[in-house]
């Protein structure tokens, strides 16, 4: 299977995000990357957009819905968000969207920090297999994988995509 060039996909995604912000009159977006891959993508987008607040990070370990199946993630790193996200326009960024459960957990966590004005979802890759009604507002590439296949992003420099 042909995998997309990540750097190029990131650059294009950045341009589309700039247009998206303008279209929706969002002047001071808060970029929030989901650990770990989402933070790398968020940092790439931040370099392009030069947003004021830099990149915030979200560690969803305490919010996952599969604790009873898989337990606690062994390496919890914690979230780093500004003092207040009240009334902010949040751009939630992840590397790969699949079931949608990570995004649900991330939104639950965000609401424990405050009540944002809006949340938009940006993902580098969409590999389908959705289990929840969650769709990205912007997505770099949609990949149709074979059954049982997964993609793995390694980084932060260089960002590389491989099949797993």
């Amino acid at each position: 299977m042909h995998l997309p060039d990540i750097e190029q996909t990131c650059t294009e995604l950045g341009q589309r995000l700039a247009a998206y912000l303008q279209q929706n009159n969002i002047e001071q977006p808060l970029l929030v990357g989901i650990r770990t891959g989402g933070v790398w993508i968020a940092e790439r987008l931040q370099q392009q957009l030069q947003t004021e607040d830099g990149v915030s990070t979200l560690d969803i370990s305490f919010y996952r819905d599969d604790f009873t199946r898989h337990g606690l993630h062994p390496q919890v790193k914690g979230s780093e968000l500004p003092d207040s996200i009240e009334d902010r326009h949040i751009i939630l960024i992840d590397d790969v969207v699949m079931s949608g459960r990570t995004i649900r957990a991330a939104m639950n966590e965000l609401f424990d920090y405050g009540r944002p004005a809006s949340i938009s979802l940006v993902c580098l890759l969409d590999i389908g297999r959705r289990e929840l009604p969650i769709q990205p507002d912007l997505c770099g590439v949609t990949l149709a994988l074979e059954e049982g296949q997964l993609v793995k992003l390694s980084g932060p420099t260089p960002l590389q995509l491989s099949l797993a």
Binding site: T36, I60, R64, D66, R69, H70, V96, M98, T102, L153
Partner: peptide, 28 residues
């Protein structure tokens, strides 16, 4: 503790042959 409970439950239903696609965090 949960992990052990799950393993125990798995051993008890070894034959049930559920090949589940685990819903959870996306592999990335």
């Amino acid at each position: 503790q949960q992990q052990e409970r799950n393993e125990l439950a798995e051993q008890n239903s070894e034959q049930s042959d559920v090949h589940n696609n685990e819903p959870g965090q996306e592999e990335a």
